[in-house]
Structures are given as C-alpha cells and as structure tokens.
Design a protein around this nucleic acid. Structure first.
Lengths: 341, 341
DNA sequence: CCTTTTTCCGTAAACGTTTACGAGAACACA
DNA sequence: TGTGTTCTCGTAAACGTTTACGGAAAAAGG
C-alpha cells in the first residue's frame, strides 16, 4: 500500500541512498536528479515511514502532552486546554514537531502512562499540566533526564526544566484588594480540592492581602471542591453557613463559580447583588453568564506558543546557536471588571 | 540511557532471539530462562523501543483521534470530547492500544494532517468527529483502505466504516413536540454555521415535526452561528427581529444557548419566562445555569467505549473469532426537563 | 596529457525489534 | 543402536530509514 523509499529507487533506477539524500535536501545530489526524485515522490504519493525514520534517527519528532480528566469530572472535561494546545501545536509545527495528546483515565496522574511514553520513546519531550506542589512526575522526569516543560510551577525538580505559569498569587491578592475597596471584609475563597499548586498560590495571595488589610483569616470561609460545576454547587453552601457569612466569594474557576451561583440562587441569594463574586480563571462562560462575572483572563493560546518556544530552547538539538537555555516565566493575570462584584 | 534487548541478552549471556521470545510469551523457551529474562528486564528497567517494534511488526498499536477547534473558537474549546475520549481510551487500553490525540489549528479540517498520520503510519486506525454531511476525510480514508470509525454520521463512504451517532433528528422533533404541547407555534432554531451533519439532522427533525403539527416552516426563525457563546450571542437577535418573533428557541448546544440567553436578557427578554429555551446537546452547564436549561443529555463516556469496541471489531487483526464486522449505531437522546421551557 | 579537485552516486551498516528456520541436545521408543 | 520426537535456543533476515565511506566520472588546473 504505502510506498517506501525502495519503490522510489526502483522506479527511478537509482539507489535508495540517493533518494534519501534528495528527499532530505542534502547538498551532494544533482539538482536534476533531486527534481526527478521529488516528482516521483509526489507521483507515487510517498511519505517516509515514521517508525523507520524514528528508529534510525533516534528521535520521534513529536512532543507529548499528558491530559487527564480530574476526579469527580465524569461528565465533561476541562475546556481550558484546547486553546493552549492550539498554540502549543502551532509553534511546535514550525519546528517540524508533532503534538500528540496522551489521554489518561480520570483522576490518575499518569505516572504509569508517563513512564510508558518515556521508556518506549514515543516522544522526544513531554509537556505536563496541573502541576502539584510536590509533583512525582517532575521528580521522575528530571531524574531520568527526559526533556520536558510544565504549564504551572512546582517545587519539585528545582530549576532543571522550563515552566510557564500564571500569577495566581497576585490574582488572589488583587481580588481581595478589589473587594475590600468595595467595602467587603468577609471574603470567602473556593478552591480545587486537589493539591494543585495554583490552588495553593491563590490562597497564599488571598491570605497575604487579608493580612495587609488587617482582616483576620477565617478558615470557615475557605472550602475545597471538585473543579467543576458540581464541586462549586456542593461546597458553596458550606461557607455561607458560617456564623458570620461572607459578603463576597472568590472562585478558583468558572465552572465552580457557575455551580456556586446556582447554590446561592436556590437559597434566595442573588450573586452579584447580595454576594459579590469574582473568578480567578475566567472563560467566555463568565462573560455570558448573568450577571457577567468579574474575573482574570489568561492568554492561553500565546501561553501555548511561548511554552513551545521555551521547551525547544531547552533541548540542545533544537536550541539555536546560543545553546540550550532553561527559562521560567510567570505571566500576569489581568482583571476584567464585569457585573458580579 | 534506555536499555535495549541487546543489553539484556549480553547481561544474561543468551541470544537476543531468546530474550525477545521470552518477553513476548512464546512457548518455545524454557520456563527457567524466561523467568531470568523477566527478572533482568525489570532490573535493567527495560521496555521495548516503540519505533523498532512498530517497524518490525508493521503496526503502531495506537489509534489517533483527530481534534481541532472550530473556526471562531479562538478562546476556549469544546469540552464535549473529553469524556468521550476517556471512554475511548479506556476501552482501547484493554486491547493494548494507545490513544493519541492529534491537534490541528482551529478551523482546518485536517485533511492534510490526516494524510500525514495515515501515510507516515503513525497510527493503526483513526477516529473522526464533527462529521460533515459530505466529508472528504471519509472519502480519503475509505479510498485508501485505512481503518477508521466516526463519531457522527455522514453520507460519504457508504457503509464501509463503523459509526456511532446520536439521534439528533428525533431530538429536534421531540423538542418541537414538547414546545407545541406547551402552546408554542413560533419556534426558532439556532444551528452551527458549518456543514456539520448533526446540524442538518437536527433541522430535518425540526421541520418534520413542524409539518406534523401543521405549522408552516419560516426561514426567518432559523439562524446559523459559531458553535460557542459568541455565536449564540451574535445570532439570536436575528430571529427575534422576525415580524412575528418566536416564543421558543431551540439551541443546538449549551454554549450557543448561553450566549443566546445573554442576548435575550440584554433586550429585557427573560429566557425561560418570556421565551422558552431548549438545548439539544446538554452539558452540566445547562443544569447549573439559571434558569436550568431543558435539554437532551448524551452518554459520552459510554459512547467512547462503544465506538472503541466497534472500531476494533471492524479490524481483522483485532476482531475476535467471528471475524471483522462493521456496525453503525444511532443512540437515543433523552430529554431532561428543567426550568427553561 | 597528467594531476588534482569537485561533483555525484552507490554500497553497506546501523537503529531495535520480531520471527522463520534450523540445529543440537535430550529423551523416548523400538 | 538407530530412529523419531520434543525442548530449547542461536542465527540471520527483515522492517524503512539515514549516513559514513569510498569510488567513478567529470571538471579544473597545470
């Protein structure tokens, strides 16, 4: 079915070596024969067998992104990553690299699957997301010397890998600042229940800002839940049951906010009127919700592009003349004021 | 770095052939040596090189899912697929197959990328989604004899491939029936602007039901937009500007409905009160929106599992004793009544 | 016309597997 | 002892590439 380099060679009556050189744009092949090879390749619909090429070159020319749904996320997944992946793939494609997304089962953090990708050399590098504060995946990768980059920070692995993150700490603080400026002093925070680093950073910023404003931290105003509508719905009533209920709530993401607002509405509390609402990771959903939710919007596609650049720059084989360099960036999160606070 | 089968052989002082046979569970190897090989493999942390294995076996043991954002979908993507992919990957894993997701740029329907996957033998089969009524990807695949299955139907390719789809036609009709029973006669329909087959099927059911109820079809009540919040927001005012405005709107999916409701609210029309709203493809978002949206909920994860089964059953190498069979299924879409109609 | 350089191409090895084939050893059976 | 069978294993080819090496032919230089 698929034509090989041998077919081409036979068809043109030249050796496979020459065909390969012509195809790969090497200098030591006559301009005329090169053209004939190229024509024949098009005519016979030839494209190189990926396995053969990878085997010989010792590289797969692809990058793997490890994707897994969260626990508690049986129904619908996280749309967050699609634009990120779009940017990532676009930039990788410029260097001739393919992006493959490796799926896992919900909730498993893919240590096993990651091993398989690395050990069977399915990809030349991997990109990790949902970084945890201490992340065994990162430990494994640094220790095995496999190239990788992360969307999100972690304390694991030191400075040995490129990472790109959003400034959740500042966003948490900014949200508090804004709410305090509008007269709130009882401010709740709803976080993901997992040990995800951005949940930690967000809370750190939140606490720091509270302290700055001389407001005492109240554990009753903090709640953790699944990162989806159901999580927000389940957990929001908890903070409202405080002896001194909050007048404002900061949600870690849009889906949790949606569920939380539903829970509020069901007890007759109007989000945006009776209780102010701010969302840390904003999506179009926030914009079209009623009331439109104030939030911090990340530039996901540019982030994908940038992380691709950073990853490539960290790999000697792809880094340019100035050699491999590891960079870590934290991007600002800009507040977009709407109607909910 | 990575140990090869040669390392194992050298370490054990036996031939690579024996090592391979031991690892692959062939009969003609002494139980004792097999155990020694297995132990050594674990100790040296051996796992077979994927490229070498694929090259020799002529199979990659992986299935590719082609994913691309829609045009107009710059910001956030379609969460629809995550649970589907979860089911797909789980079932494939049972047969030792990996699922890889191949990303494309927004809007391109991946004809080129699909070619690459097929021609470079990156996967043994592919799964397509967002099938169009006439789909050149399907033409290409059937013609090239490459194994594939589709989520969604198409008129292309005949009965040569397994497909799994939802009964959008019935859902469209059911939605109309329900609205007519509640006294509506001016019913609008908002569809995706692309030539996606489910948009067509939905409208076919809609028109059939209208006819059954003796209601004349009015093109002014039909509008097409991007499959996201912005699309619904942009396009809903159009149908409302009809001389005889609709008293009910059927949206093709949740994101469009969200945008549409926003547009309604901005002109003082309360969705669920002044205008009834039904969503064809329901998500948790519908459940947590206010008002909670009536809609039809698909069982995405089971669909993923089932399509994996169907795909494998259609490939001789994976089909069981009874041989390869091609099946096509259309699953019912069950209406879940909530507060919006 | 001879030497040197350049241009172009063929040969063959290598990447890491799997597997068809055959052969030696052990064993059974007569 | 001779023959056949069964276990086990080594040998080597093959999958489709890329590339180091060398050599023939052509061109350049004298």
């Amino acid at each position: 079915m698929a034509s090989s380099i041998h077919d081409l060679a036979r068809h043109l009556n030249i050796s496979i070596g020459t065909v390969s050189r012509a195809l790969n744009g090497r200098a030591d092949v006559n301009a005329d024969t090169r053209q004939r090879v190229l024509d024949a390749a098009k005519k016979l619909n030839y494209s190189p067998n990926q396995s053969g090429r990878s085997l010989r070159r010792g590289a797969t020319h692809s990058v793997a992104f490890m994707l897994q749904p969260h626990p508690g996320d049986q129904e619908y997944g996280e749309p967050f990553f699609i634009p990120f992946l779009t940017g990532l793939q676009a930039k990788l494609a410029e260097s001739g690299l393919d992006l493959i997304v490796v799926m896992g089962a919900p909730g498993d953090y893919q240590q096993e699957r990651l091993r398989r990708v690395v050990e069977t050399r399915r990809a030349d590098a991997v990109v990790l997301a949902w970084t945890r504060r201490e992340d065994e995946r990162i430990d494994y990768l640094t220790q095995s010397g496999f190239p990788f980059a992360t969307l999100g920070r972690s304390r694991s692995g030191g400075d040995s890998y490129p990472s790109l993150d959003l400034d959740f700490e500042k966003a948490g603080a900014d949200a508090v600042d804004r709410l305090v400026a509008r007269g709130h002093r009882r401010i709740a925070a709803i976080r993901p229940s997992l040990d995800l680093n951005f949940g930690y950073l967000f809370l750190a910023g939140y606490r720091k800002a509270l302290r700055r404003h001389g407001i005492e931290f109240d554990p009753e105003l903090i709640a953790d839940g699944f990162i989806n509508e159901a999580g927000g719905y389940a957990v929001t009533p908890k903070v409202m049951r405080s002896k001194d209920p909050p007048t404002a709530i900061i949600f870690n993401n849009d889906a949790m906010a949606l569920g939380g607002c539903k829970a509020l509405a069901e007890t007759g509390i109007r989000p945006g009127h009776d209780v102010a609402v701010i969302v840390i990771v904003d999506t179009p959903l926030c914009r079209y919700f009623s009331p439109a939710l104030t939030g911090f919007r990340p530039a996901l596609e540019p982030m994908g592009e940038r992380l691709a650049e950073m990853l490539l720059a960290s790999i000697p084989a792809y880094a340019g003349a100035e050699g491999a360099r590891i960079t870590r960036e934290v991007w600002p999160l800009e507040l977009i004021a709407r109607d909910s606070d």
